[in-house]
Simulated assay, not measured.
Amino acid sequence: MQNIAGISPSNIELYRLATIHSSIAQEGGNGFKESNERLEYLGDAILGAAVADYLFKKFPYKNEGFLTEIRSRLVNRESLNMLARKIGIANIVQYDKKNAHLQQVILGNTLEAIVGAIYLDKGYLRCKKFVVDKLINPYHDLDALVKANSNYKSKIIEWAQREGKEIRFEIISIKKGKNHKEFTAQVTVNGEPMGTGFGNSKKKAEQDAAFKA
Rank of each mutant, 00 (worst) to 15 (best):
K86T: 14
A100T: 12
K155L: 11
L39V: 04
G6S: 10
R77H: 11
N91Y: 12
A185C: 12
R126E: 15
K178Y: 10
G116A: 06
S8I: 06
K58R: 13
P138Y: 02
Y95Q: 10
K122G: 05
H101Y: 13
D53S: 10
A84Q: 02
V189S: 06
N99R: 12
K134S: 13
L55M: 10
E13S: 12
D121E: 08
K212D: 00
Y124D: 07
D208K: 02
R16V: 02
L39C: 07
I118G: 00
S201Y: 13
A90L: 07
N76G: 05
Y152K: 10
Y124C: 05
N137A: 02
K176M: 05
G108P: 05
E206H: 06
I136S: 07
K62F: 07
G191S: 05
H101K: 15
A117M: 03
H101Q: 13
K165I: 04
K212Y: 00
I92M: 10
D133F: 04
V146R: 03
M194H: 09
A160L: 04
V115N: 01
E182G: 00
I167Y: 03
V189L: 14
I171C: 11
Y95F: 15
E27K: 15
N30H: 11
Y41L: 11
Y95M: 12
I167C: 02
K129S: 05
F130M: 09
L135A: 02
S22K: 14
Q161A: 05
A205Y: 03
G29Y: 08
V189H: 07
T188Y: 04
E34A: 15
L142Q: 03
K129F: 00
I156V: 12
H21S: 02
K58D: 03
D141I: 06
V189A: 06
Q207D: 06
Y41V: 06
H180M: 02
A25M: 09
D96F: 08
K155E: 06
S35R: 04
N99Y: 10
K128C: 01
S201R: 14
E37V: 14
Y41P: 01
D208P: 01
N200F: 12
D53L: 08
G197L: 00
K129W: 00
T196D: 06
I70A: 03
F59L: 02
E69K: 15
S23Q: 08
H101G: 10
F59I: 08
E13G: 07
E112V: 07
T188N: 07
V75Y: 00
D44Y: 09
L107T: 02
G197M: 00
R168L: 09
E182T: 10
I114F: 09
R85Y: 14
K165M: 04
V93Q: 01
T196L: 14
D121K: 07
L74S: 04
N99W: 04
N36K: 12
K97C: 01
I118D: 00
V187E: 01
F59Y: 15
K202D: 13
Q161K: 13
N151D: 15
G31K: 05
M1G: 06
L74C: 09
N30F: 09
N190H: 10
A117N: 04
P60G: 08
G65I: 11
A113S: 11
G123Q: 13
F130L: 09
L39N: 02
R85E: 15
I114G: 01
G88K: 13
L102A: 07
M82L: 13
S79T: 14
F56L: 10
Q207A: 08
L47Y: 02
M194F: 10
I172P: 09
